[in-house]
Write a protein that binds this DNA or RNA. Sequence first.
DNA 1: AAATTTTTTTAGATTAATTCCAATATATTG
DNA 2: CAATATATTGGAATTAATCTAAAAAAATTT
Lengths: 138, 138
Amino acid sequence: MQARKPYRDLIDRLRTAKLRPTRQRLALAKLLFSGRDRHVSAEALHKEAHETGVSVSLATVYNSLHQFTQAGLLREVVVEPGRSYFDTNVSEHHHFYLEDTGELSDIEPETMSLPRLPEAPEGCQISRVDVTIRLKRT
Amino acid sequence: MQARKPYRDLIDRLRTAKLRPTRQRLALAKLLFSGRDRHVSAEALHKEAHETGVSVSLATVYNSLHQFTQAGLLREVVVEPGRSYFDTNVSEHHHFYLEDTGELSDIEPETMSLPRLPEAPEGCQISRVDVTIRLKRT
DNA sequence: AAATTTTTTTAGATTAATTCCAATATATTG
DNA sequence: CAATATATTGGAATTAATCTAAAAAAATTT
């Protein structure tokens, strides 16, 4: 993260994804991609945008999140009916899901292994493997 | 599945789960548990009930599915925002999800292995591990 | 088996997440 | 800058799911 050209990288990322770097997409990308990895819901991101003075409609938040996901900048994780998150960490990894609070967190890749996967059925290929470890408070 | 006392087993299963064997629950249990393993959505089961002449409200379908799940007779699998299935196979196994059609199918347990799981974080315990292999048409 | 109590079902209203729509605004191209 | 293509918007619409309170059915007590 540089001080002088704060948007340069983001603009490039959007351009690479064939997405015009509009004010809204840039602002959302900034919230999502500058800083630590995040797990955000659409509603939460919309709220956050407003709180930081960015005026963007909920429809645009949804559009952008899906476009970013399509472009491989985000990954969507569904944990429950009516609850899904967008994860800014798109490298191969899996999740803990705390059922009591709805909190999602990354599993350190080196703490689990998945050495043997089944063949994809005829006419199909694997597009992704999702492992969710559901947790309860003891 | 016997011919003479077709409801005996189902009634017992419900009783064991501390659920009264009402007409509605019995009819749904019959659809779910007599025959092959199934992956059904609430809406689909509701529709199926009506088509087979069982009058049951959607609310009751949801109630029953959740009660059955709570009792360990079913397992709920969420695959996408707005799409979840109830699986009559409650033994330990995982799923293929065909993104194009929304179809869910079981993975043969012997075709995959998960030998190393991470520790549950402090204050938590693992309630379930879900593996979903997402598939695309080639 | 009638009366009473408890549990269940129901239709319809309600909520929450998401998508759709067509008018308006913005970005890109020539 | 004009023309074209694309994006954003608010609000309506849709969908899945839950809630509610009244009616019905099942279980229990008498």
